[in-house]
Amino acid sequence: MNRYTLQDFVNQTEQQDKGEGLFELETQRMLEVNLESKIWAKSGSMVSYMGNIKFTREGILEHGIGKMFKKALTGEGASLMKAEGEGKLYLADQGKKISILNLYDDSIFVNGNDLLAFEPSVSWDIKLMRKVAGMLSGGLFNIHLSGRGMIAITSHYEPLTLRVTPSRPVFTDPNATVAWSGSLQPEFVTDVSLKTFFGRGSGESIQMKFSGEGFVVIQPFEEVYFSGDNNG
């Protein structure tokens, strides 16, 4: 039998048009963007493109001086690039699993390192987590996205969504927290007793506490961030 031929490999892995619109999951770890005008994407996430597409690193005053100062304070992570033109664009981020979300007057917070791409119609703002600046090594900011349009987020392996209710708050490890609904405002709590169970320093004792009504998305992986890494 002529198995595993080169033609078999091409047939099995070849790009397919699914007709799903602007954002398509070409694979679970590769986002296809059917670009017709402009999108924002995480810097360094382009792996291939076809057509006439121009890439521009985000201008320092592109989104207003307020966001510029916030980004200077975070010092990492949420560096964006603008892709303009027409064609097919393929985005990926370290082999992480991609989830597409279509906002219909919704809002969501996404960890700054886990936002892959979004439409210009989506409003966004950087939210700093100042209270824990001295406790966690990076990952100190998230991005609030709202309005209408498509966004793509990433997670290490399969994401799990936990419901938050007034009678049942949810506690998470900050480094395993991907996103949460816009109705929630996390607070940071410290559990000194957890230090005795983990040998990796004080980070394990800090938890995010979500109270109210909404949801939290977590991943089965603790992502450690390093200050000064702008490029993702």
Rank of each mutant, 00 (worst) to 15 (best):
V164L: 08
M135D: 15
L145P: 01
E119R: 12
A152D: 02
S123I: 02
V110D: 04
V164S: 08
R163A: 15
M135P: 00
S155C: 00
H144C: 04
I153A: 10
L162R: 15
S121I: 09
Y157L: 01
D114Y: 08
N142C: 14
P120Q: 12
R130N: 02
G149E: 08
L136T: 07
W124Q: 06
N111C: 02
S146H: 08
S121K: 15
Y157C: 00
E158G: 02
E119W: 07
M150A: 14
V122F: 03
I143T: 14
G134Y: 03
L145H: 05
V110I: 15
I126P: 02
L145E: 06
G112D: 12
I126L: 15
R148I: 10
P120G: 13
T161F: 03
F118M: 14
L136F: 03
S137A: 11
T165R: 13
L136I: 14
S121V: 07
S123C: 06
K127P: 00
I153Y: 03
I153S: 05
T161N: 04
I143V: 15
S121Q: 13
I143W: 06
V164W: 05
A152R: 06
G134C: 00
A133V: 11
R130F: 00
A133C: 01
N111W: 01
T154F: 01
R148W: 02
L115N: 05
D114W: 01
M135A: 13
D125L: 04
L115T: 06
T165Y: 04
M135H: 14
F109Q: 09
L160W: 01
L145Y: 04
A133I: 10
D114G: 01
R130A: 11
E158V: 04
L115W: 04
T165A: 10
L136A: 04
L140F: 00
V122Q: 09
G134T: 09
A152S: 11
S137I: 00
K127W: 08
L140T: 07
W124G: 08
Y157W: 03
R163C: 06
I126C: 06
G134H: 11
G139C: 05
G112P: 00
T154I: 08
F109Y: 13
S155N: 02
I151T: 05
